[in-house]
Structure formats: C-alpha cells, structure tokens
Write a protein that binds this DNA or RNA. Structure first.
Length: 460
RNA sequence: UCCUCGAUAGCUCAAUGGGUAGAGCAACCGGCUGUUAACCGGUAGGUUACAGGUUCGAGCCCUGUUCGAGGAGCCA
C-alpha cells in the first residue's frame, strides 16, 4: 500500500517496482484517454503516464486539467521506455494514483520563448525551468569542486570580511555603506587579508561574494559575484601557474563526470571541455601584444585570421577594436581574439606594472612588467583568473602604494606583514559565475547566478 | 559616461506609402490510446511605454521622457 518515496534521479534502480514521486507538474500533453504529465522533483524530470481505464474517470479528469506547476504526489509502476522524455529520461511512471497537493494558478512562464526582462523579473520562478536548473546544479558542482581540491591540497578556508574600511585597488568601483558614524565599503577582494592568513596557516583561501560598483552592461559582468581566492606562502609565479592549471582542470573534469545529464540538456559541446587538462599554454604579454598587432593588421587588410582549429576567427565585429600598443591593458575584444588561438585556457604573463594592482611583484631585471598572470577561458568567456606573485619587500610595497596615489594609513597593517618573516608568496582569484558560464556554454553570466545583481537589477 | 537597437494582447512577435489592431503560444470549452514546445475545432483577450506635436486621419512621422537589450571603457 505504501510505496517507497524515490527521487527521479534514482528511478533506474526501481524498474518494475511501484514507487511514489513528489514534485511539481513541469509540462503536460494529452491524447484522449492518455495524459502525459512531466513531473519534476528537483533531482530530475519524469514522464508520468495517466491512462483513464487504469485510474478511473475522476482521477483522470483531475490529471487532465491540472495546471502547470501544481504540486502533486503520484504513485505508480516504474517502466523503462526509450520514448520517455525527461532528465535523465528513458524511464516513466505508469500512474496508479495521484494526489494534488496544490492546484497552481496560471503560471507565467510557458513552454514558448520569453524575453530577458520578463524572465529576470520572474527569476524566482525561472530557476525551475530545466536549463536554469541545469546551470545552477553545475554551479553547485563547481563550488563543491573548488572546496574539495583546495581542502585536499593543504589549504584552509579563512573567511575574510565583507565590510571593509578601505579599498584594495581604489574606491571608485566600491559600494559604500553607512557603518554607524563612518563609511565602510563592501569588499571587492579578500586578498589582503589572505596575505595575513598565509603567515599563520601557510596556504589559505577565502570564498564568498564580492561587490563591484562598475557600470558595466556586458554578458560578463555582475555587481555581486562569487570569487574564490587562494593565497600561498613560499610560492613564486611559476609554482602558482602549476597550481592554477591543476585547480581549473579539476573543476572542469568534476563537472564532466558529475553533471553529464545537465551538460547534455544544455547542449554543451563537451569535447571542448575534455581538453582542459594541464599544461595550459603560457604566453607573455609582450608576445600577446605582437600577436594582436599582427592580427589587427591582417584583419584591417581584409585577410582571414584562423583559430587553433583552422576555422576563421569568430565574434570580431569591429577589427579595429583589436588595435593595441605596448602598455595598454587588454579589452574584451583582445581576449576574445587571443583565446581562439588555443584549444584550452591560456595564461598571459608579465603585464605592464602600470595597468595592474600596486601589490604585484616586478621582475627584478625589468621592473616595468610584473609577475602577474591572467587565465583566459576559451570561446570568448574572458578572464576567469587574475593572479600574481605579491611584493614581499616592505619598502618597495610602500613606494608602490604612494606611486598609485593611495593613502598609506589604511594599508599600515598590510605593509607591516612584510616586517615579520616576509617570504615570496602568490595568489589568485577565480570568478565563479564566469567559470560556470564557460563550462555550461551559456551566453550571459546572469544565468550562472541564482539571483543575479546587475546594473539596474536588484529584484527579485 | 559613450555608441547602436528596441517598447503593440499574460508571453513571443506581425501590421505594404500614414487609412477600422493580427497571428502563434498561454487561459477557457470540445475531440483524440504514445504525446515529446503534440495536433484539430471553438471562445475570450488591446489606453500600441509616457507626454506633447504634425495631419482630415498616427502603432507608423517629429520632439522630449522613462524603461529595457547589446557593445565600448573598467574588470573576475
């Protein structure tokens, strides 16, 4: 009488048994005496077949008229059937009884296409849709893989403050909040605190939301996003890059292993992700600028430039945006063009010190460039990691703070770290939403966050 | 901050040169034993973002405003 309650993800282990599913009506089609209910329970989507002679006229009428997103409990026999749609699909429930928990009102999100604004206004409901569901499950895997790798490689998580007294890299892009009688700012990085942490614990990371008040309206920007920032004592830039490529590869390979259903639902070309294994290519900023200048000249002359696989470069609407001279930071067109020359993420090292943060260690023989490295994701997803070796000499650090026009007082404690056992050390920050967007192959980072915050978007 | 594009039914979009506001989906009613965004028949659904202007007549042309999308800059 009482059938076991089973998650849809585990249905394949219950073929031939009578089980109970609890969930919500995702979609429905009918054919005379047959009603096909697509029921989702959070773990997957299962087609439940209601046949009038099996359940009686009364139950069939209820099932046949049930609105989308009604909550329900269904009991029936699990059957393997190649025709059955769903996630993972291939199994369906031959319904014996059906209980409606709540009959839903008209649901605003239908099976047809919707516009961005409408969907974002209904984000609290949109996350039920299968694509959004899949993306957010991949996000959860990414976050779990991040912690698993770091925790098993000698890192400990040390939480850094979100309310901070000053800026690490200038105040123009910070959200200001009232802090009793003074001003505070929402953190845009935990890095400086991480540097304190390594002298206590050796290897640390912080993982949480960060905030940037940038007026950016692009597919790569949120005002609130999650970032993981590992920091390592006794670590130079080369050692850092080896850690980064192992780390990123682990995240991607974990998703391929654990989210095959989700990536399939998203239509992701997983062959691009399977190649994400170390070593990642490394190019210097100097070489990258020369490559971009050559690319720019050829495109402006009407010539074709090809990607790593021989296909013409994609997504270059205005070739003149690739114009660059030594000393300029990369814009997104530069990153988009450059990354297409490689089949996996690429490190760009040795950026000009002038365009990077004050705390980055200069090369001793070439102080105009610093021991920095950005990791650029393939397929136009842009920078997913920014990292560097940090300045370990107190006097140099103080000079750099002044050269960047920053006040020395708020950084007193930070500079002081160099007085007591300073060592070469390095760290990086990886943006979660960009990483998830890349792995899922989605257009915009807003879909990689459950409730994204953007310029002009604070609801719901 | 700048550039480009847009706003018409609950949703996605049409509407020839300025001449009575249209379709698909969703909803509602009916039909169908294998549907995959089902299909077939029917019903209902509108202050064309807002304000002003031109015109005999404006969804359409002009001015302003608001909101949205994509991109640049900045960044992960």
């Amino acid at each position: 009488m009482h059938a076991p309650i089973v998650p849809i993800a585990a249905l394949s282990q219950h073929v031939g048994q009578v089980v109970t599913l609890r969930g919500w009506l995702y979609n429905k089609t009918g054919k005379g005496k047959l009603a096909f209910l697509q029921v989702r329970d959070g773990s997957g989507i299962c087609q439940c077949v209601v046949f009038r002679p099996n359940v009686g006229d009364e139950t069939f009428a209820i099932a046949d008229k049930l609105p989308q997103e009604s909550s329900l409990i269904v009991t029936g026999a699990v059957r393997a059937d190649a025709r059955a749609p769903g996630v993972p699909g291939g199994y369906e429930l031959d319904v014996q009884s059906l209980q409606v928990v709540q009959r839903a009102e008209d649901y605003p999100i239908g099976p047809k296409e919707h516009g961005v604004e409408f969907l974002m206004d209904h984000r609290h409901l949109w996350i039920r849709s299968s694509r959004q569901w899949a993306v957010l499950r991949v996000r959860a895997t990414v976050m779990r893989a991040i912690r698993a790798w770091l925790d098993s490689h000698g890192f400990i998580e040390v939480s850094t403050p979100i309310l901070t007294p000053s800026a690490a890299e200038g105040t123009t892009n910070l959200f200001e909040v009232a802090y009793f009688d003074e001003k505070a700012y929402l953190a845009q990085t935990g890095q400086l605190y991480n540097e304190a942490g390594i002298f206590a614990f050796g290897r640390v990371y912080c993982f949480g939301p960060t905030f940037r008040a940038e007026k950016s309206k692009t597919r790569r920007h949120l005002t609130e996003f999650w970032m993981v920032e590992p920091e390592i004592a006794f670590c130079d830039l080369d050692q850092l890059l080896a850690i980064e490529e192992e780390f990123v590869s682990h995240i991607v390979q974990t998703c391929l292993r654990e989210n095959a259903n989700e990536l399939k639902l998203l239509g992701r070309d997983v062959s691009r992700l399977q190649r994400v294994i170390p070593p990642f290519p490394r190019i210097t900023y100097d070489d990258a600028v020369r490559t971009l200048q050559e690319m720019h000249a050829r495109l402006m002359a009407g010539e074709t430039v090809v990607a790593y696989d021989g296909a013409p470069l994609q997504g270059i609407e205005d070739p003149d945006l690739l114009r660059i001279t030594w000393g300029m930071d990369f814009g997104s067109p530069h990153e988009t063009a450059l990354t297409q020359l490689y089949d996996r993420p690429v490190f760009v090292t040795g950026f000009p010190s002038a365009v990077k943060a004050f705390y980055m260690e200069p090369y001793p023989d070439r102080p105009e460039v610093c021991k920095s490295a950005d990791l650029l994701a393939p397929e136009g997803y842009g920078e997913i990691i920014g990292g560097s070796e940090r300045i370990s000499d107190g006097a140099l650090l103080e000079r750099r703070i002044r050269e960047h026009g920053l006040p020395i007082e708020p950084y007193k404690w930070y500079v002081e770290l160099r007085k007591y056992g300073s060592v070469p050390h390095s760290g990086f920050g990886l943006g979660v939403e960009r990483t998830v967007a890349w792995i899922c192959g989605i257009e915009h980072v807003r879909e990689a966050s459950p409730f994204p915050r953007l310029l002009n978007r604070l609801y719901p």
